[in-house]
């Protein structure tokens, strides 16, 4: 999805306005001219400047307002794209309740199948990967991966 520069510029102006409005409300450091709002306001000014330049060039360019790439017309690709995002969201939501191993096994299996890997290979990868990762990260590198539902089971 490629936006016309003019549209991108308008979005930037809007973002700059929001940033500036929020930054305006930051309390000042007593007795100082420069404080918490100084930098956000400078950044907002910069964003607005970029926005203005982009609006200028976008209007000259005469490109379509939004240019839809080819993949957006192919349902398969769109589903692939959305499945990656969904996978990460599932990871986030199931992370603590289900635990690392179960979540990762499930998500990997679904993704591999979605991308057209065979049943057997998918199953093998989906089972082996989380167990290996749990051992390396959880046990050796002490990353506190949640055990979730598998908490009562002792892993060696």
């Amino acid at each position: 999805m490629r936006l016309n520069d003019a549209l991108l510029g308008c979005i930037l102006l809007l973002v700059a306005a929001v940033v500036a409005a929020i930054a305006w409300g930051f309390p000042a450091v007593p007795g100082q001219d420069y404080g918490a709002s100084t930098f956000p306001l400078l950044i907002a000014t910069g964003l607005a400047g970029c926005g203005a330049v982009l609006i200028g060039s976008g209007l000259r360019e005469r490109a379509p307002i939004v240019e839809w790439q080819a993949w957006l017309g192919e349902p398969r690709r769109v589903i692939d794209f959305l499945s990656v995002i969904t996978a990460i969201i599932v990871w986030i939501l199931a992370w603590r309740p289900l635990g690392f191993i179960l979540t990762t096994a499930g998500v990997l299996f679904a993704l591999l199948r979605r991308f057209g890997v065979s049943w057997k290979t998918s199953l093998a990868i989906a089972i082996a990967t989380p167990l290996i990762m749990n051992y390396i990260f959880g046990r050796l590198l002490l990353v506190p991966l949640p055990a979730g539902l598998l908490a009562p089971i002792r892993w060696w």
Partner: peptide, 23 residues
């Protein structure tokens, strides 16, 4: 790639989590 990409995702998820131990 179709095998590699899901695996990369798994490593990225763990990596992002491990950087401050937060979901």
């Amino acid at each position: 790639r179709r095998v590699l990409m899901p695996l990369i995702l798994a490593f990225c998820v763990v990596g992002a989590f491990a950087s401050n131990n937060a979901v």
